[in-house]
Each structure stands twice: as structure tokens, then as C-alpha cells.
Amino acid sequence: MTATDWPLWEVFVRSRRGLSHTHAGSLHAPDAEMALRNARDLYTRRSEGVSIWVVPSTAVTASSPDEKDSFFEPAGDKPYRHPTFYEIPEGVQHL
């Protein structure tokens, strides 16, 4: 590794306790510790976070946009997975 090919890291920030980490962006750094420090300076300059994850970008496996339709289609014809699919008589409470 030379200074010109620092790996890319994806940065996830938890904005406050009780919320999940959300993708904030990416940055280059030679190792995880530097990635974390750089992420602190880059993505939380205004107290935007209470916790940061950094993940090597190469560790991310993504679904392909070309398969988008076939990949997500199976959920499309299953409206019965939603509560609004069911008709309940008027006046029934707590359901």
C-alpha cells in the first residue's frame, strides 16, 4: 500500500442514543483507527453523532440494480402481509 491507495471506508453515524447508525458517507484512511478519527472530524463537527462505525467498502456486498425487479418482486404480490389488507367490522377496538 502506498499513500495513494488508502482503502475506502464507509461511515455510519448514530446521531443520538436510541437511533440506529445511518450511512453518512465515505472516506479514505490507512487503517480503521485513522478512519474513525477522520470520520469524527469529517462527519461530526457539529455534534451530529454519539457513535461511529467504519466499515471497509470492499466488505459491502450489494444487490445489483439490474436485478432490481426480479430480486424484489416476490414481495410485490403479497399485500396480505400488511395490516390494512384485512377488513374489520366497524367499532371493533384495540385491533
Binding site: 500500500m1 499513500a3 488508502w6 490507512p30 487503517d31 483507527e33
Partner: peptide, 21 residues
């Protein structure tokens, strides 16, 4: 700034982290 970048790389290599992408 080159020496700073080089030092960071040397440190990462020594500690076995930051494998090149």
C-alpha cells in the same frame, strides 16, 4: 504532506491493518 501520509501507511502496515482495496 507526503511524509505524513507515508507515516500513516507505515504504521498501518506494521499493525497489519488497512489492507489495500
Amino acid at each position: 504532506g507526503a511524509w505524513v501520509r507515508d507515516a500513516a501507511v507505515a504504521y498501518a502496515a506494521k499493525h497489519g491493518e488497512g489492507k489495500p482495496s
